[in-house]
């Protein structure tokens, strides 16, 4: 098989770029801990409200610098206890599951974009820099009311 000289240059250039891209993505993900939403915990989708931590949805302080926000998604609303309120500058660990179909929990203008799958617990940690009211939407189709599935989170100083 014969490769044209320019094709060799072109493919070498391409492959070098590819390796560079993947290294950047890999280092950023695993060395700097910027991994997307995920988690390996499972849960009985019929017993969500009886299973910790979802028996007490809401925001809880874990220690000085970390909070956990436990939220249940169902068609077509989120249950995060009373009001969702968290401080800026602290690590917030979001934990979600669904009692019915697949939803998402997506906070606009942030990297929080979590798929919420029945039977699984999705986790994502995020630190808000700016205080304010952030819009939360479901961006995974979940039924007729899908476009009405949204809420807000208030980030305080």
């Amino acid at each position: 098989m014969h490769l044209h000289k320019y094709e060799k240059i072109w493919l070498t250039f391409g492959i070098v770029c590819l390796v560079a891209f993947l290294s950047i993505v890999g280092v950023n993900a695993f060395a700097q801990d910027h991994t997307p939403a995920g988690g390996m915990h499972t849960i009985d989708p019929e017993k969500v409200r009886e299973t910790a931590p979802f028996n007490e949805p809401g925001v809880k302080q874990l220690d000085d610098d970390t909070y956990q926000a436990t939220i249940i998604a169902s068609a077509f609303a989120y249950d995060g206890g009373q009001t969702l309120q968290v401080p800026a500058g602290k690590e917030i660990i979001f934990k979600l599951t669904s009692t019915d179909v697949v939803h998402s929990f997506t906070i606009d203008n942030t990297n929080v974009n979590m798929m919420v799958v029945p039977g699984q617990v999705t986790t994502k940690s995020y630190t808000f820099k700016e205080p304010g009211k952030y819009l939360i939407i479901c961006n995974e189709y979940c039924g007729t009311g899908h476009h009405y599935m949204y809420t807000e989170i208030e980030v305080t100083e």
Partner: peptide, 15 residues
Amino acid sequence: LMEPGISDFWKFLQV
């Protein structure tokens, strides 16, 4: 990539 039930290792391998 945004969902639970698959560990980061396998997600990244497929990336």
